[in-house]
Amino acid sequence: MGSYLKLELLRSVRNTTGLIMLTVFPLVLYLLWTKVLRVVPAGPQQVDFAAYTMVSMAVYGAMGGALFIGGAIAMERSKGWLRQLAVTPLPAHGYISAKLIAGATGVLPSILVVLGGGALISGVRLPPGTWPALVVLIWVGVMPFAALGVTFGYTMNGQAANLAMIAVFFGLSVLGGLWLPVQLMPEFMRTLAEYSPAYQAGSLGWRVLAGDWPTVKSLVVLAGWTLLFSGLASWRYRRAL
């Protein structure tokens, strides 16, 4: 599997379109909100907003990266690449492991670039230990989406899978309060949001900004989604073998 993982890592580094969509795009959105538009009045509130949005946008980009691992799988499946791999010594689980590891690695730039933008451009100041904690929490928080992506990748073909995932990506981002904070949502939507995976992925980071640990509810909700998505993914994956 090592040699195939190497190839997958090489591919994710080379994927400029993906990198721009999931790194530059969240960064530009972030700078728009914190440096260009006047969303909140200047002062301490502005500083809080810059940190809060930094986490939102990092989660947004990373979540996209995790989801679209499945998009690549769907494309490769419909183009017959998995047929070719089936006649090599690489077992099917070797393929999916390489995809997931390379995909998870490919998510890191989204997180690092947006956090970098926060620190260097938007003036976010945090205790030194908080930065690595943010990276890890956001990274771990978006892993359920990799499983969701794999589910799509083994269920739908090529372009259809990608379109479906774009819809899910935006839907969950908005519902999860990554674009606009859930505080601005009406009551019922807010309740719904709090049980959604993107919100809980974000909440890990938002809480650590204030020095708080993740809530039990966060962990339970996230674990629930992870179990559900992983279950679906492994079911679809087995069906496709």
């Binding site: 190839l7 591919r11 070719q84």
Partner: peptide, 12 residues
């Protein structure tokens, strides 16, 4: 094995 309709990775 050489299969008739196997795909290849396009971006490598």
């Amino acid at each position: 094995v050489l299969l008739q309709e196997s795909g290849l990775l396009e971006d490598v």
